[in-house]
Nucleic acid binder design. Structure first.
Lengths: 156, 156
DNA sequence: CGGGATACAACGGGATTTTACGGGATTTTA
DNA sequence: TAAAATCCCGTAAAATCCCGTTGTATCCCG
């Protein structure tokens, strides 16, 4: 778990320990950003899983082209529109996709909290994390500590 | 997902991230435009994809004939006859084919929404997208966000 | 164990490239 | 020859790349 800042250009840096995990999975400096289904935060993960899903749904997008087969267009719509792909530079920075950023309360300059969850990691606005009743107190306590450490660094 | 504008000459620009996909498939600045079978919008895709689907339809029809079953000729009629081919310039603009444009409510100057679906992409009049009950709310919400961003850019 | 050297992380910002759009010039069609 | 479609160039804004700087953690050697 670590905190970095959003700069004037809307960029945030993925902490090094999470970046290392992405690189191990062959992410090639690309990360998928999506809304979390469980909390008012974003999740990030490497492109491999997403590509598999897209390949599965992408070939069944239109009933006419697919020779009359029934298709659920909304599945393809969501698979593509709700996942943003962002590429990060040599120091791990990526521009937060505007829509997810807005949904997660990250639409302005300020601190961002990254927390690894195994296959994915969460991206939080620290204020929303603190306010969420479903988040375990021990997790909150640690988040608060990381945040205060970051502020001590003189960036807040 | 992105929004661009129709100009006074009836041209719209395919967003760069979709154009890149077309180029990767060897589209050579040409795109197929057709009505969607699933929604009041258009779909666009590269010429190779059209050829692949025609071949797929042909083999399906052959199989049914071999089995002594009837073939639905209308599927072939629609899959072959209703596709317009448009070429786009160096900045991705193409003239919307008049008939499909009319069918999708894109017959006047205004914003157009492009959304990738994998092998194809959808081309929407944002108003019709908003009004369509079959479109998933999460997709609508993002569309609305893209539209407002485009309007903020001063092009509306 | 301590202190200096080294490596790397996060950040700021300039320089370059790309995008989307307007509109003029040329070609085609009727 | 007039009208319409197409091609093509210029441009402002925005996104992207890439460099240097600063601060912090780690290493190494005495």
């Amino acid at each position: 778990m670590a905190v970095t800042g959003i700069d004037a250009k809307g960029r945030a840096a993925i902490p090094a320990f999470l970046r290392a995990a992405l690189d191990r999975n062959g992410a090639e400096s690309r990360v998928i950003i999506a809304e979390s289904a469980n909390a008012p935060c974003l999740i990030g993960f490497d492109p491999a899983y997403l590509e598999a899903n897209r390949a599965k749904y992408g070939s069944r997008a239109d009933a006419r082209l697919d020779a009359g087969e029934a298709v659920d267009t909304n599945i393809a719509r969501l698979a593509f529109a709700l996942n943003d792909i962002a590429s990060y530079d040599s120091s791990g920075r990526f521009v937060l996709p505007p829509f997810p950023a807005m949904k997660a309360g990250l639409d302005k300059t300020g601190p961002v909290l990254f927390a690894g969850l195994g296959d994915t990691f969460e991206i939080w606005n620290p204020d929303l994390l603190e306010a969420d009743a479903n988040v375990h107190p021990a997790f909150k306590e640690r988040a608060l500590f990381c945040l205060s450490q970051w502020k001590k660094g003189g960036k807040g």
